[in-house]
């Protein structure tokens, strides 16, 4: 899921300087789990905005914040509230904020900072394990990603900065290459670490990415 963190309220307030009336959009998926855009946080920020003299014209928590079609549909049901609002504050990730951008002409502002694609270790604890590189090499590395879990994204083994199995940038973080080595050792595959990994193609997907699943490629826009 996408990990987000709330911006300080003063920053949000600053963003909304020109708006007397605000419509709030939350996300029922990732941002709810991160406690940055669920029902509770939408309510909380609404109260705070009101205590600062803003009017909250209305709010909605989308099932999935980054689903542009859903956002469009949901917004139909909040037509009047949206018409009244001077601005929309989106309590989702950057993708969710831009989903709202795509379906509304109002000024749109983010309440969150978007951090990374994270695994859930346990509730409220998230860790980045994949950087979405477009050419997965986990087959060769014991299913531990060097692109992500080695700070420098080294593909051919640990740097000299490994200290006691920890990374030179942060003694609280495991050295990704030590983890890979230990895993391959367990699997009796250490020899595979000796294979040379050539430089990666960093342009497997041209930015900004766009993708249509094969079943939807022919025959055009079948669904909607």
């Amino acid at each position: 899921m996408i990990i987000t963190k709330q911006k300080p309220f003063e920053v949000v307030l600053e963003e909304l300087t020109g708006a007397k009336s605000v419509f709030l959009v939350g996300c029922g998926d990732c941002a709810t789990l991160c406690e940055t855009g669920g029902e509770d946080q939408v309510k909380e920020i609404a109260e705070k905005l009101e205590s600062e003299g803003k009017k909250v014209a209305g709010s909605v928590v989308l099932e999935v914040g980054c689903h542009e079609l859903d956002a469009k549909k949901e917004f139909r049901g909040h037509k009047d509230e949206l018409a009244e609002a001077d601005a929309i504050l989106v309590m989702s990730c950057g993708a969710g904020t831009q989903a709202v951008r795509a379906v509304s002409d109002k000024p749109v502002f983010p309440s969150n900072d978007t951090l990374f694609l994270g695994n859930i270790l346990r509730y409220g604890h998230y860790e980045e394990k994949c950087r979405l590189c477009g050419d997965c090499i986990l087959d060769a590395t014991g299913a531990i990603c060097p692109v992500t879990r080695c700070h420098k994204g080294i593909l051919n083994g640990p740097c000299g900065g490994t200290d006691n199995g920890k990374c030179e940038v942060d003694p609280d973080k495991d050295c990704g290459w030590t983890l890979i080595y230990q895993q391959l050792e367990k699997e009796g595959r250490v020899g595979e670490m000796k294979e040379y990994r050539p430089p990666k193609n960093w342009n497997t997907v041209l930015k900004p990415g766009r993708f249509v699943i094969p079943s939807r490629q022919k025959g055009g826009d079948e669904g909607e």
Partner: peptide, 18 residues
């Protein structure tokens, strides 16, 4: 370069070889 005092040493030696 190579780091003889790396901890753990084995992966460092693999890298040396590479």
């Amino acid at each position: 370069i190579v780091t003889p005092e790396a901890d753990p040493l084995e992966p460092q030696l693999l890298k040396f070889e590479k």
